[in-house]
């Protein structure tokens, strides 16, 4: 499988990807609440949320973030990722039950590091809903292996 992963050297600045869509269901939210332990009323109390600015329960922001990480793996061939280094992220709008989200991503940075076997790749990401509205966006920094020298 190793040869199918793309090394730092293979990834080009400006590359763009778009993922398939994924419909976020009530079950996703319930499972994420159980897994994370985050039972905030935003995600779990349909009655209180009727009175809120959203009008209904919304997905956890971090559920959207986690789902886009999975969508990234379906948008492009796997990177030879050594580590996820960090992210800067904004939640711009709600993801509601039944919304279908997809990821649009672009490579906006490539930096060599002091270590010769790896480089830092920055990917700008937007999560869009079925109406094309950006509901989340940000940048992620990934440490990627360099192609091994023969």
């Amino acid at each position: 499988m190793g040869e199918l992963r793309r090394y730092f050297d293979d990834i080009e600045l400006g590359e763009e990807y778009e993922s398939p869509g994924r419909t976020v269901t009530e079950a996703d939210i319930v499972i994420f609440a159980g897994l994370s332990g985050d039972y905030n009323v935003l995600h779990t109390d349909a009655e209180i949320m009727k009175q809120s600015i959203f009008g209904e329960r919304i997905a956890h922001g971090l559920l959207g973030l986690a789902i886009q990480a999975g969508l990234f793996t379906r948008a492009t061939q796997a990177y030879a990722t050594l580590a996820f280094v960090g992210l800067r992220w904004k939640f711009k709008g709600p993801i509601k039950i039944g919304d279908t989200i997809r990821l649009r991503a672009k490579v906006i940075g490539k930096k060599e590091t002091p270590k010769p076997d790896r480089g830092l790749v920055t990917v700008q990401r937007s999560v869009l809903n079925q109406r094309g509205e950006v509901v989340q966006e940000g940048e992620t920094d990934l440490m990627i292996e360099r192609r091994p020298r023969p």
Partner: peptide, 30 residues
């Protein structure tokens, strides 16, 4: 790597202090 980040929000519910009345999660640097 995203999983410990997800756990930190739920762990915040296991302290005696009542949780923040969050209207919206606006963003994070991590």
């Amino acid at each position: 790597d995203v999983l410990p980040l997800c756990f930190t929000t739920g762990l915040g519910w296991r302290v005696p202090k009542p949780p923040l009345v969050v209207l919206a999660f606006m963003g994070l640097d991590w």
